[in-house]
Design a protein around this nucleic acid. Structure first.
Lengths: 189, 189
DNA sequence: CTTGCATAGTCATGAATGTGAGTAGTCATT
DNA sequence: AATGACTACTCACATTCATGACTATGCAAG
């Protein structure tokens, strides 16, 4: 049950609609969790029923009405309790790692293609996160911002996202190089 | 459906029983996937029914009999197909990130405790993976091994595991430092 | 002499997550 | 005038993952 806490954590930034959250949790800036829109709507409904978030209808013209949610005091207390509880260790779970684990017995060309694609995606995310970090800290340096800024939570998680994707990219390019070199070595015989 | 492929990938290393796989997929060397014993037994049963792995009973004395599994040709073909298919992007999903995202509104002390614990766990994993890497490459250098060794798949995934845990540890210590400094700065006022 | 741990598994159940499809209006493009 | 894209959300179902409890046997430490 960590999705509910991820939603609560996202909502301490301000009021958001399910649709806005869905954007944030999807492809874009899912730097600390990922979820499908359907999950979010369902979770928001549950959270509201339990009084951890409060929603209010906002009429719009030219587009459908929306419901904005904010965290209640009970929601904050729930987050507090969640933070105090010990976190389960995070594990990597990546299709690509499974494929590389099997690298010695499967077609290398297909694998290299996958790795190349992934390296590109990682690079794109690095750029995205970099822009987000600059936006968050404004004209301050990182040190300055982390010392005196308010709302450093999103910044810190984003830093982790950047580091993860850099690692991702570097490992992909390294692995590609290794696989390519071995392929050429085999071809020479 | 990536667990099945993770099992297949693990089995190209040789014959293993469900129990042995469970050990490898659990706390120890889950450097490319993680699963509970029950999942593995269930998956192995399914894979055998579909002919992707073949099991054979091995009688033992002093301990229960076991069933060793190996990948069949059909299993290798399945792995091949899996490798060719495009991998879904890996996302971080970590309770700890959710907690840090909420850092601006929850108790910092509890959070720092969590981060400290996690940093320690990461450090332990780094040591574990380091030992595994040395065992895998024997007396060769890494370059040498990656160029000419056979079965480099596990080595490459383990490299990724090490890098991930180092990143993990560094980010934890950095985040701890930031939170602590802010706490002290607040205390001075 | 019994408590606890390791081997080697099975069964059942619930929670979390993913996927596909559908509704309904607005706006811009072709 | 139709097609597709964006906002905003809902329903239903399937798959995957996690959890606890349980059965056996053998071995070693206290």
């Amino acid at each position: 049950m960590a999705l509910r806490h991820a939603v609560l954590a996202a909502l301490i930034e301000g009021e958001f609609s399910g649709y806005q959250l869905a954007k944030a949790f999807d492809v874009g800036v899912a730097n600390f969790w990922y979820a499908q829109p359907q999950q979010l709507y369902a979770e928001l409904a549950r959270l509201e029923k339990e009084g951890l978030v409060a929603g209010r209808e906002v009429a719009q013209e030219g587009r459908p009405n929306k419901r904005l949610f904010r965290v209640t005091d009970a929601g904050l207390a729930e987050l507090e309790a969640f933070t105090a509880a010990s976190a389960k260790p995070a594990v990597i779970r990546d299709d690509l790692l499974v494929k590389v684990q099997a690298a010695d017995r499967v077609d290398t060309a297909a694998l290299v293609a996958q790795l190349t694609e992934r390296a590109g995606m990682a690079q794109a995310k690095i750029a995205l996160f970099g822009a987000l970090l600059r936006r968050l800290r404004g004209d301050r340096t990182e040190e300055e911002f982390l010392r005196h800024g308010d709302r450093i939570g999103p910044y810190l998680t984003c830093l982790r996202g950047v580091a993860f994707e850099q690692e991702n990219r570097d490992w992909c390019t390294r692995t590609i190089a290794v696989l390519e070199e071995r392929r050429q070595a085999r071809a020479r015989h």
